[in-house]
Amino acid sequence: MEIIQHNTEKAGNFKALSDGKTAGLMTYTWAGPEKFIIDHTEVSPDFKGQGVGKKMVLAAVDYARKNNLKILPLCPFAKAVFEKDNSLSDVLF
């Protein structure tokens, strides 16, 4: 599984690809220069139950750590991932 990030000045996304197929998409919006809001996560029905959503959230966490950013997870799925894993709290806003 490959996670690809696309980023613009105002928003971006993390896309999960498996053998060229889109497995999932997680979108975010910038809330200033040091924070982004995860607002939506979706996983293709063919890939449900394979941890695709969590892989995208972890890719966002990795990106935030490398760039000294904070994340506000408004998406219910992303929020649940953060609530279940205290090791991610360093990037929470």
Score class of each variant (00 low, 15 high):
residue 46 D to N: 14
residue 71 I to L: 13
residue 53 G to L: 02
residue 47 F to K: 09
residue 57 V to T: 06
residue 64 A to V: 03
residue 58 L to W: 00
residue 62 D to K: 06
residue 49 G to M: 08
residue 41 T to I: 06
residue 69 L to I: 04
residue 40 H to K: 13
residue 71 I to Y: 04
residue 39 D to H: 06
residue 65 R to T: 04
residue 48 K to W: 14
residue 55 K to M: 13
residue 57 V to Y: 12
residue 40 H to M: 07
residue 66 K to W: 10
residue 64 A to P: 04
residue 45 P to T: 09
residue 56 M to R: 04
residue 55 K to I: 06
residue 49 G to N: 09
residue 40 H to C: 05
residue 68 N to P: 03
residue 39 D to M: 07
residue 67 N to S: 06
residue 42 E to A: 14
residue 49 G to A: 11
residue 65 R to A: 00
residue 60 A to W: 00
residue 62 D to L: 08
residue 45 P to K: 15
residue 69 L to T: 05
residue 36 F to R: 02
residue 56 M to Q: 09
residue 64 A to H: 02
residue 60 A to L: 02
residue 59 A to L: 11
residue 51 G to F: 10
residue 63 Y to W: 11
residue 61 V to F: 08
residue 42 E to P: 08
residue 60 A to G: 05
residue 53 G to K: 03
residue 47 F to R: 11
residue 49 G to V: 10
residue 68 N to M: 11
residue 43 V to F: 11
residue 44 S to W: 12
residue 43 V to C: 04
residue 69 L to H: 08
residue 43 V to P: 02
residue 49 G to H: 11
residue 62 D to E: 15
residue 52 V to R: 04
residue 71 I to C: 09
residue 48 K to T: 15
residue 44 S to D: 15
residue 62 D to A: 13
residue 61 V to N: 01
residue 66 K to A: 15
residue 70 K to W: 05
residue 38 I to A: 05
residue 42 E to I: 14
residue 36 F to L: 07
residue 52 V to P: 07
residue 37 I to R: 06
residue 64 A to T: 04
residue 69 L to Q: 05
residue 36 F to H: 07
residue 60 A to Q: 05
residue 54 K to V: 05
residue 55 K to R: 14
residue 65 R to L: 07
residue 42 E to D: 09
residue 37 I to Q: 11
residue 47 F to Y: 15
residue 60 A to R: 02
residue 65 R to S: 00
residue 63 Y to V: 00
residue 70 K to N: 09
residue 52 V to T: 14
residue 46 D to G: 08
residue 66 K to H: 10
residue 38 I to K: 00
residue 65 R to H: 01
residue 70 K to T: 08
residue 42 E to H: 12
